[in-house]
Simulated scan of single mutants.
Amino acid sequence: MPSADARTNQSHDTPAVRSPTAYLFHGETGHLSTIQIYLQSIHGFKVKDVQDMLSSSALYSTQKVFSRIVGKSVRTIQRQGAAKQPVQLSPQQSAVAFQYAKVLEHAIAVFGSQKSAEDWLGKPCKYLEGGVPLDLIDNPLGFQAVEDYLERIELGIYQ
């Protein structure tokens, strides 16, 4: 938990430093089982929560990750927003949003800082056949490959 100093100068609506998945679940996910996470994603995450999670990351903000999650261009999203489209993501979009949040959170834990994690996520990786981790996350198999490699790095068994 951040110190009182870290929370100073933050408004009531702006939370102290939060983990990426905490934006989606309004709290820490450490106590949630995989099935509980699944069930919450089936109901769909709120668009605002996903946008807040993405805006907490310089990399995610600049790489149009929201468009990757929803599978639409920013312009299409803006047009639909004006037409009062649902404010929640579909179950599939929510699953992809969770993958992005989970990988960022895991990478921060592995590399020790958000900046280092984002640097790693945004560069080609030899272990991933030259793929950029950020570009693999929206596919379930790519997500698993990135997560597996992060686990290997944690254990010190990587090349």
Rank of each mutant, 00 (worst) to 15 (best):
P15N: 08
P15F: 12
V17K: 14
R18T: 12
R18C: 13
S19F: 07
S19Q: 13
P20R: 03
Y23G: 02
H26R: 14
H26M: 08
E28F: 09
G30H: 07
H31W: 08
H31V: 15
L32K: 09
L32E: 07
L32F: 11
L32N: 06
S33T: 15
Q36N: 11
I37T: 08
L39Y: 12
L39R: 15
H43M: 09
G44Q: 13
F45T: 06
F45A: 06
K46I: 09
V47L: 13
V50M: 04
V50L: 06
D52E: 11
D52G: 02
M53K: 01
M53S: 07
M53I: 07
M53D: 06
S55V: 04
S55E: 10
S57T: 11
A58H: 13
S61G: 12
Q63M: 11
Q63E: 15
K64H: 09
V65T: 05
V65N: 00
R68M: 03
I69W: 01
V70Q: 01
V70L: 00
K72H: 07
K72M: 09
S73D: 11
V74F: 04
R75V: 12
R75S: 11
T76K: 14
T76Q: 15
Q78C: 04
Q78Y: 04
A83Y: 06
K84L: 11
Q85W: 10
V87G: 08
L89N: 01
Q92A: 10
Q92Y: 03
S94R: 00
S94N: 02
A95R: 09
A95C: 05
A95G: 08
V96F: 00
A97D: 01
A97M: 05
Q99L: 02
Y100G: 00
A101E: 01
K102E: 02
L104I: 05
I108E: 13
A109K: 12
F111S: 14
Q114T: 12
K115S: 14
S116E: 14
D119N: 10
L121C: 03
G122Q: 06
P124Q: 03
K126Y: 04
Y127W: 08
L128R: 09
E129Y: 06
G130S: 09
G131L: 13
G131F: 13
V132W: 03
V132P: 05
P133Y: 03
P133D: 05
L134Q: 04
L134C: 09
I137C: 05
D138W: 03
D138P: 02
D138F: 08
P140H: 11
P140I: 14
L141W: 02
G142L: 06
G142I: 05
F143A: 00
Q144W: 02
A145C: 04
V146L: 07
D148P: 01
Y149F: 15
